[in-house]
Design a protein around this nucleic acid. Structure first.
Lengths: 332, 332
DNA sequence: CTGTTAGCGCATTCAC
DNA sequence: GTGAATGCGCTAACAG
């Protein structure tokens, strides 16, 4: 293995000069720099990033820790990556598998401290567990749970999005609106917030919200949703609107309706949440809530950059506004 | 910051004993071990992974380097992760953005050597550029381009998959089969291999393959495909089958057909490639080629594990078999 | 603009 | 079963 000291000897300079040429931290006059670069080339030298890290305390790497590499997370990741790169750092993704145990391990200070900054998507981790996370590494939380106020936190306007979706259905004449993937369990984050928005839209419109129409899902997959909605319909449940808390759930619902010859939007109107690209290409195309990934990415990176620059401003909570995208699965 | 030597002092032992307790590399008798663990707890000590890495030369981390965090790559990543974890290592994802320049940078020995092993998804990188990649770090290539024989390489049975898809269309009576996202450019990997499979199916069936039906796509997105297919149909192109080289392209094509009231599968039959979950929920559901992600993941990790264990067996090329999944977008 | 000194925190090696 | 010495490869800090 070629080390920096080999390069220094080859170029007839000190190690510090080689280091300065490579990092650009200090000016090196052109002839010296050229000798160094020529030596680097001749020897095929590559810097040892681990040693640099141990010495300098920086990795120039940011980690985004997510439950899985899918869907919502890959959307956000693809948007965060270029912003992190603009700051001269790399982005890496790590996966937790959504088990709280694993989210905590990923948070283990040991693993956190190898990064200059961490974005942690909080799904399975409740407030109590987060309280225990002690680290000096800059960290921004992403997600819909409540988190301790000492963290910077970016979340969606969940309740408002759900309210928009449901109000749209009610305004288009729906009176029995299923909230697919909602829950009455107050503590559970996204599913509960979106159910709350569904209720609020009903209150605003003066339409009673039937709690029997709150239907939880074991997973926000099209498969699960397809099965659950199919069973409900077969059992005789009568609805004229479905607000699905995710687009994948909405897609399963659309298929269950189509299987039974129920016309969308004429018999049942459907709204999703996430604005997945695929939704645009269904017939009818899926009306949905756009979660504004770009703004989520921008806010996240802004907060993280601020911390990595050493700021000790008070933690911020950013609620990213969302918007309704009207397509064919609801009435004009 | 608490270091290992602080823990050693607190426990009244040497650093080596602390290290041995934490790594398990050597046996430490229970009373000593307990004193060490108690001291770790009291001081809130967390190991410095960077120092461990510099000293030991291992990171216990594998990188999967992909063009984007989307679709096919996130599917494969979600399957590779648990297999890597079974081997006691972490998986991290890095993104190249599919620019050859960036793929080379990701390959820079500097960045590679911080990982115990690397899986590189080769999209923009041609054989010539790969020839220049010199590294001792274990590396497995993933993807459809030709690569130098010194690399372990996992790829799909692209041509066979395309042949299956096209043969299915021809057997169902289609005679003018568009290959959407194909190319006549021999050097371009996936798009060219799948077009070759389309040709072979025609030869096998004794049906002439009209090269005017090879339609490249600038991107394998539903948006691009929707536009391209729409324009072709509006220009009067007459087809009775579409083999789309990816499911996302197929989805755009389905929408373009639906927009124009062309019945699937009656007027035009459609087959995709990737077996995305969403395809199952379209009406009609999308017939597609299943790329066998599980087997891709298994083969990749097997090859990488072998290298990381120090094997210098000759490089292997694994071609993962694919299969046809028949759904409603083709005739029974 | 360039060099010297010192040490980041740990695990390998050798000793007992 | 435990300890002492050594150095992995690099850069911060301080000269000059």
């Amino acid at each position: 293995m070629v080390t920096m000291s080999d390069v220094a000897r080859e170029a007839g300079v000190s190690m510090m000069t080689v280091s300065n040429v490579l990092t650009g931290h200090r000016r090196v006059i052109a002839p010296t720099r050229d000798r160094v670069l020529a030596a680097v080339d001749r020897l095929g030298y590559e810097i040892n990033l681990t040693a640099r890290h141990l010495r300098s305390g920086r990795t120039d790497t940011v980690a985004l820790i997510v439950p899985s590499f899918h869907d919502y997370y890959s959307e956000v990741a693809d948007r965060i990556a270029p912003l992190v790169e603009q700051g001269g750092r790399h982005l890496v993704l790590e996966r937790t598998g959504a088990r709280p145990q694993s989210e905590i391990e990923s948070l283990g200070v040991a693993r956190l401290q190898i990064y200059d900054g961490v974005v942690l998507s909080v799904v399975g981790l409740d407030r109590e567990r987060l309280e225990k996370v002690r680290t000096t590494a800059p960290i921004v939380l992403l997600g819909e749970r409540e988190v301790p106020s000492r963290f910077d936190h970016v979340q969606l306007a969940n309740e408002e999005g759900a309210r928009l979706a449901t109000a749209h259905l009610l305004a288009r004449g729906a009176r029995r609106v299923l909230v697919l993937g909602g829950t009455l369990d107050e503590a559970s984050g996204m599913a509960s917030l979106r159910r709350a928005g569904w209720e609020r839209a009903h209150r605003d419109a003066g339409v009673p919200a039937d709690r029997a129409l709150v239907v939880p899902l074991a997973a926000y997959s099209a498969r699960e949703s397809h099965g659950v909605v199919g069973d409900l319909l077969d059992a005789g449940l009568r609805v004229d609107g479905i607000f699905a808390v995710t687009d994948t759930a909405a897609i399963g619902a659309l298929a269950a309706l189509a299987d039974r010859g129920i016309a969308v939007p004429h018999d049942v109107q459907v709204v999703g949440f996430d604005n997945l690209d695929a939704g645009r290409y269904f017939s009818p195309a899926l009306t949905t809530i756009d979660p504004n990934h770009d703004e989520v990415a921008r806010s996240t990176v802004r907060l993280l950059d601020r911390r990595m620059a050493g700021s000790d401003d008070p933690p911020e909570r950013v609620v990213v506004p969302v918007s309704l995208v009207v397509r064919g699965s609801t009435l004009p």
